[in-house]
Amino acid sequence: MLRKLTFLAVSAVIAFGTLSFDLQKEKENPGDRLVGIWEPSNGRSRIKVDRIGNKYYGRVVWLIEPNDAEGKPRTDINNPNPDLRNLPLRGFRMCKDFVYQGDDTWSEGTLYDPNNGSTYSGTIKMRDDNTLDMRGYIGVEAIGRTDVWKRLKMPSKKKK
């Protein structure tokens, strides 16, 4: 009985400690709720968002068509800088420099469209923990396009 109680007490302490740690982390960087893997509405790619310093970046981690017509991994052939057209498209940071502004909003960032090499200003609004409104625009935010992104769960089991 005593052993059982001790086990329960230790489990409770560990659980509380983990919870406190997570809450503390979220308190320090409330924008970190954006971190994770997201899928745009067309389902043709998946984007992993990470924080670097105080800004958030999203890079392509999966493409429905990872290879070009010749069967080689696609690269950023439309990059305005010719020296960077060999960047692998899988891995490319298409969302850059988003800063958390509070109120579930990240802004001051840019969205890159590898289909035409254009960069747009961007704003991200989190509707709920699993849904983002990703808005890209040129100049005036009112004139732009919003895409809905859904959060994906990270794989947790080792594949055999």
């Binding site: 670097i52 420099d97 001051e108």
Partner: peptide
């Protein structure tokens, strides 16, 4: 790939 970034909100990676 190697990239550089800063905390400056006006400067892009």
């Amino acid at each position: 790939v190697v990239a550089f970034a800063s905390d400056n909100e006006d400067v892009s990676m």
